[in-house]
């Protein structure tokens, strides 16, 4: 087995987000989180529910771009709302902007809400997701353009915004983890400021900090992100992503 690539390190870092997640719906956005979620189902989180991106719950594991092995349930959008309102879900979304307390923006760039400089997709389900079930983020290009000191619009609610909004916003609020192409980050600090949990092999702490538009918290020696083991590499390369779409997502 050849050495793991950066994309493969990112896949296992995403998969580790869902270790022992139990019987919840895991909703990954992007190729690498999708491969990661299926890897988690095949290894450390066999109980998770995965949809086909349309309205069906799947069984087994299958390649990105391919057809699932089978189906175990029906999950139209309305049922997804009900599941997320009940907390039985963990989503990994792709931020347009993400700040140091986990506020996330995919709606618009600019300061004038009624006339943005750049209109993006819209808040989507981010406000509801973040106050109702665990939310993680995937940043394919870790840079100061995405990792900003202040987001232009709060779509996904960060720790400071949840605290300011009060106990009902905080009750189920849980921004779990941020996986980027450079590092893994979390909010395990006293004030929930974003912390550098690990850097991927070949990335220095300085490099991760330089690519970030705010001060990252560092507690002690920052470890290296773990490498995928041989079985994980086999699953990624031969079963889950034989066409190597994961590498394309990281092309800078």
């Amino acid at each position: 087995m050849s050495e793991p690539t950066r994309a493969e390190v990112c896949v296992t870092a995403c998969a580790d987000t869902w270790i022992d997640a139990g019987e919840i719906l895991v909703s990954p956005f992007g190729t690498i989180p999708t491969v990661g979620a299926r890897l988690a189902r095949a290894t450390t989180a066999p109980q998770v529910l995965l949809s086909d991106g349309e309205a069906m719950l799947t069984t087994g594991i299958w390649p990105v771009g391919g057809e699932p092995e089978g189906y175990e349930g029906w999950i139209p959008f309305r049922t997804i709302f009900e599941m997320l309102w009940s907390g039985r879900r963990h989503v990994m979304m792709i931020p347009g902007q993400l700040d140091g307390f986990g506020n996330m923006n995919i709606s618009m760039i600019g300061s004038d809400y009624q006339q943005p400089k750049a209109q993006l997709i819209g808040v989507r389900g981010a406000p509801g997701n973040t106050v109702q079930h665990p939310t993680s983020y995937w940043v394919p290009r870790h840079s100061a353009r995405v990792m900003v000191s202040k987001v232009d619009r709060v779509c996904g609610v960060g720790y400071d915004s949840a605290a300011a909004a009060g106990p009902s916003a905080q009750r189920f609020h849980d921004i779990r983890r941020v996986v980027t192409d450079l590092a893994v980050l979390d909010f395990d600090t006293p004030d929930h400021a974003m912390r550098l949990a690990s850097v991927h092999p070949g990335v220095s702490v300085e490099q991760a900090q330089e690519a970030t538009g705010f001060q990252l918290q560092v507690t002690g020696e920052v470890p290296e992100t773990r490498l995928p083991n041989d079985e994980e590499l086999r699953l990624i390369r031969e079963v889950l992503d034989p066409e190597g779409l994961r590498e394309r997502e990281l092309a800078r």
């Binding site: 981010a126 406000p127 509801g128 106050v131 109702q132 709060v154 779509c155 909004a165 009902s168 916003a169």
Partner: peptide
């Protein structure tokens, strides 16, 4: 609904 709390 809880959705919207704390957001823009």
């Amino acid at each position: 609904t809880r959705s919207g709390l704390g957001s823009g």
